[in-house]
Design a protein around this nucleic acid. Sequence first.
DNA 1: TATAAAATCTCTAGTAACTAGAGGTTCAAG
DNA 2: CTTGAACCTCTAGTTACTAGAGATTTTATA
Lengths: 156, 156
Amino acid sequence: MANLQSGAERWYSIGEIGRESGTKVPTIRYYEQIGLLVPVGRTEGNQRRYDERARERLTFVRHARALGFSLDAVRELIKLADHPERPCEKADTIAREQLEAVEQRLETLSRLRQELERMIACCDGGQARNCRILQTVSDHRLCLHEQHGGGQSSDR
Amino acid sequence: MANLQSGAERWYSIGEIGRESGTKVPTIRYYEQIGLLVPVGRTEGNQRRYDERARERLTFVRHARALGFSLDAVRELIKLADHPERPCEKADTIAREQLEAVEQRLETLSRLRQELERMIACCDGGQARNCRILQTVSDHRLCLHEQHGGGQSSDR
DNA sequence: TATAAAATCTCTAGTAACTAGAGGTTCAAG
DNA sequence: CTTGAACCTCTAGTTACTAGAGATTTTATA
């Protein structure tokens, strides 16, 4: 809450950085609340004002999220970005884990796609009684693959 | 709450149908609570007992979930399966929507995979300062694709 | 038949990652 | 100086479960 009007630095409102980064305003407040973004200075009327650094931090978070990293992973990545002298094995590990998860999901989904395509192709649009889609859902044996499901949360 | 011991029908406990269908017991109770499964009869000691039909219903639900349908979609599919005389357009629509969602996710994910692979390949394992992974997350311009993220919830 | 272990019951609360709304205040333009 | 957009806090809702507490029932064994 220091010099919010003096100095040469440019300040941004929460709405501005939201628009810029494609983030809804409540989401930004949420990130602050869970400690992902450091609280920024306020105006006398209690409104948040962001500087360049805070803006970049939000961009970092959003981009990491867009890459599919969990908020916990993002937290780790931020920690690393804040300590440039540390080795970056951790970032490597996180990225590799993310890659593996993505590959896993890709596999599951492409099996699902195949299954859905087949179901749809076989549906003749008649009575529900004869609907291939409903039959397939009813009877797992009509499936091409055993793999989807079986255990829980193979997809998410 | 009728004849739970008389008659020829076989009854199953919640644990049994859970094991069979790969569903955790609380999940089954949850499905009942939200009205996805019809409440079944109970023993004198208030424990649930499932018959063949109830067992199949759970299988249906689990399989539909494994195919990626939302609980709401499953609800619709159940309604249809319960009315075999109706036309099955609705099932077709639901399945097509699901297929489209799956294809969408596949696309996003394969872009992500590419991005992650590139990030990881470029990381030299040195200081965080020079880490390609962190740099890429910091600066969207280092990305191959603009598409991932941009708006919100492209993946989910 | 007695007892102990396993399974079940209800209820509440927690998870991830936001999103929406109520009710009130502040900022910027005209 | 007024008005309307943007902001504030706080609570609760979303999806699809999952976990735990504390009590009761069922089942298997001695």
